[in-house]
Amino acid sequence: MSRTLSVLFILVCYVIQGQSQQVDQDSIKNLRLNILPVVFYTPETGLGYGALGLSTFRLKGEELSTRPSSVQLGITFTSKKQFLMFMPYEFYLDEEKWRFKGELGYYKYFYNFYGVGMDSREEDKELYTADFPRFRLAAYREIFQDFSIGLGYEFDGYHVLEPEPDGLLDTSLDIIGKEGGTISNIGFLALYDTRDNIFHPTKGWYVEGAFYHSARWLGSNYSYQKIELDTRYYQQIKGNVILATNLFLGTRSNGTPFQDLNYLGTKRTRGFDNRRYLDKNEVSLATELRFPLYKRLKGAVFGATGTVIPSLDQTFKASYKGAVGGGLRYIVNKKEGTRLRVDYGISGDGGQFYFTINEAF
């Protein structure tokens, strides 16, 4: 278990699964709701408690053969007066010709900071607290089968940011964003998506490219650009055994605030402490084998490798870090395939537990 969770880890959940029903026929149909209470403890947060919820539905006029829209909601409080509220969403309209996805959130929480680069040291770890709202929106229009283009917007209001006094973040002169500020970016998007299911793909491709530019005319305190390429492939190799692969490339320009740098420790590289390694550029590769166990219970084993680097020309001579792990999934909605996910990933830096909804990628 990681140092962060070395004292005690408690995770208790159960599912309240709503029955399929038609609600407000003028707007929403086939609404299904799942609620998951959560309790946990870490030294940094103290006792934490809250709930995760997932609803799936189809909007007016959408056929049952189309992909379902979904809204997730997580609310967590801790005994140390921390608070998280996040609501990812995805909507499909006009027979999937329009797709909207994003997130609404508010975070008052602690985050780790080790410094920048793959040579950052474990002993330099410190915590900083941040209090900020978040808004994400990406709107896509299909221009031919399976291929869409769109616009995106990102907002984070880091106006309350408290580093440890005289710590690495507080005393570093070259860390952009340590004083707090507004991230306000507008982007151009392209998406190729042939997955057979958005919650548990068994075959197909998902390739998303994004270019974002910080928009001072929208209130950004920073001036930078970023490009991301997220490529996923799914293949059913035998029976219900699925091989999923995710290659991610991300690059940021000079002027990027440290809160928006690329980092290892995401769902792609499970096993690292969150934001353990961060820099302007990321190259990571993850693969996962998913297989049935018993009725609604599924299993998975995964591995990943990745690096963060100051410039892309160092890609092939950079130091790469690896992680492996496994986990369980429990299907809470057999019709749509939504599921609970519990994973444990191990790297050279220790291990991490993950408890959330749906697959990592």
Rank of each mutant, 00 (worst) to 15 (best):
C13G: 11
I16G: 04
Q21D: 10
I28N: 01
R32E: 15
P37K: 08
V38G: 06
G46A: 12
G48Y: 08
G53M: 15
S55F: 03
S55K: 04
F57K: 00
G61K: 14
E62Y: 09
V71H: 09
Q72H: 03
T78I: 14
F83P: 01
F83V: 06
F86G: 09
Y92T: 06
L93A: 04
E95G: 04
K97Q: 10
K97T: 09
E103W: 02
E103Y: 07
G105D: 05
Y109S: 07
F113C: 01
V116T: 14
M118C: 02
R136W: 11
L137Q: 08
A139N: 06
E142Q: 15
S148Y: 00
I149N: 02
F155N: 00
V160N: 08
P163V: 04
D166G: 09
I176P: 00
E179G: 11
E179S: 13
I183L: 03
Y192A: 00
D196I: 11
D196Y: 08
I198D: 08
I198K: 11
W205N: 04
Y206E: 02
V207A: 12
G209V: 06
Y212M: 07
Y212A: 05
S214M: 03
R216P: 03
S220E: 03
S220W: 01
Q225M: 08
R232G: 03
Y234F: 15
V241A: 08
L243I: 10
A244H: 06
T245P: 02
N246W: 04
F248S: 09
L249K: 06
N254K: 14
G265L: 13
G265C: 11
G265F: 10
T266Y: 06
Y277S: 08
Y277R: 09
L278W: 05
V283C: 12
E288G: 01
L289E: 11
F291S: 12
P292E: 05
Y294M: 05
G299D: 05
G299T: 03
A300H: 05
V308L: 03
I309Y: 03
I309E: 00
L312V: 15
F316K: 04
G327D: 12
R329D: 14
Y330L: 14
K335N: 10
G337S: 07
R341L: 15
D343Q: 02
Y344G: 10
S347C: 13
G348F: 07
G350E: 13
Q352G: 02
Q352T: 15
F353N: 08
A360R: 00
F361D: 00
